[in-house]
Amino acid sequence: MSHRFDIVVDGRPVAATGDWTLAAALLNAGIVRFRTSVTGEARAPLCGMGSCFECRVRVNGVAHQRACLLLCEEGMIVETET
């Protein structure tokens, strides 16, 4: 089992490991609104491999990062796009 740490998502701690993608960590924490669609719907990962862009979140201040393509790193600060 690899080293566990917390990342910060919308100001709250979320469990992660360096082996998990950010999308997996958020889903494991029960987060289902990764972003809000242009008509206000909650959206979450669909394709899991970088092509659908539904899982985009703000990571360390950089907007529109695909959570399914990023591995969790210690100190990561994530904001869902609401």
Partner: peptide, 9 residues
């Protein structure tokens, strides 16, 4: 997508 996310933790 499900397979990818499972493999990703």
């Amino acid at each position: 997508g499900a397979k990818a996310l499972l493999d990703a933790g």
